[in-house]
Simulated scan of single mutants.
Amino acid sequence: MTRPADWSLELQLEQVEERAVDPDVKAAIADAIRYLHSGRSQKRRGGRELVRLLEIARLRASEESEWHVVRQVQDSLDYLDGSLLRPDFEEYYRIHQDGPRNELNRDYVAHTFAAAYHFLEWHYRKILENRRTATVDEVLQQLIDLSNDGRFVDAPAERPGRYRIVRGRAEMALWLERVLRYRIEVEDPTGDSRRIVSSADALAVLADDEDGLALLRAAELKRQAESLAEIRRIAEDPDATEHAMQTKLEEQPWIFGGRFVGADARRRLVSGDEIDIPLIRADGSLHVVELKRSRGASIVKRHRNAWVPTAEVHDAVSQVVNYLVGLDEHRQRIYEEFGIETRRASGLVLIGYPAGDTDAAEEDVNEALRLFNAHLSRIEVMTYKDLLDNADRALGWT
């Protein structure tokens, strides 16, 4: 979203027009200024049309090699989209100031810097008074937490002239931001979340309180992030076993977007086969996950000037095809015995972690698998890194 055009932008564009040399460049900048002045009741016009006109002016300046104008018009565009802040913009172009530097801004920065360090010194002493054995890392973490919570300072109406920092608000705000941005819903917080409460009464209080429920969900989000970090560590470890990876992934079914089928059912879905990770997705369909090696797996090879999946990948896909064929053949029995519909079953092969195990760049591996997957019907091949990166994005960590 662009910033509304204002007087500072108008003055800066007039400076840029004066510094331009070529008539076509001057005319393009003049068009932008003319549009800026065309608003009703002497209001300045901005929006997409002004951005378009400035981009034309930038292009004209580049065609005439007036690179100083290109940079200044780019500053205008950066100011409009908010990436260049008003104090810097006005000081760069000495707008509304007589001297070489804005003394008000300088004094403001100096006083803020001094006050911040005075506050940190006071808080540091308070920490040591309460915990004389606190380590440097512990003190530093408390100061970091305080800094994060400080962004949400409030001013109590009952205490004029005083301000308050409520500890823990930063984590709650981060949770809320990620929920709103990524539509994450945690329906059954477990593990660390449940350990927050110590009695039925405490649970009732938290469940009835909006902030309490937010804390439960925030704790669950943090637990998921920590689990992802552990899974990534295993995936990057060349000595880790498939069993270690399977154990950790089974604890986090949300990564695949489903819930696990019980271990007993897993062994009996298809006679003679034990599926690594069978899941029931939200639409009720069965999803089969086949785990292969993370590090050391051969994913792609060079063939006729292109990267293509290796025999190891094809073998894994064939294995999942056999699973799906068995599920189709025993569809009626599986439905009667377990209540699972296998007609729309799909499969995922997890294999490899592009990190030096192949001469191909990560982008080449992903492109080769994307083309390969485009020709598959009910099966997808994915690297562990791609899976974990997707999960990180779902939590908002990357």
Rank of each mutant, 00 (worst) to 15 (best):
A5H: 03
V25M: 03
A27S: 10
I29N: 03
D31N: 12
I33L: 13
H37P: 03
S41E: 14
G47I: 00
R60W: 05
A61K: 06
V70H: 06
R71A: 12
D75N: 11
S76A: 14
L80T: 00
I95N: 08
F113H: 15
H118F: 12
H118W: 13
R131N: 11
L140F: 13
Q141S: 07
L146D: 02
R151N: 10
A155V: 11
P156H: 10
E158A: 11
Y163D: 01
Y163L: 10
R164C: 08
W175S: 06
E177M: 08
E177R: 14
E187R: 15
T190G: 11
D192E: 13
D208M: 10
A214C: 03
L215W: 14
Q224L: 07
Q224A: 07
A225N: 08
A229P: 01
A229S: 11
I231E: 01
T247V: 13
G262E: 08
A263C: 02
L269I: 01
L269F: 05
S271G: 03
S271T: 09
A282C: 04
D283M: 04
S285H: 04
L286A: 07
R293Y: 08
A316K: 07
V320M: 05
D328Y: 13
R331I: 06
I351G: 01
P354L: 03
D359W: 10
L369M: 09
L371Y: 13
N373I: 07
L376D: 00
S377L: 13
D386G: 00
G396L: 04
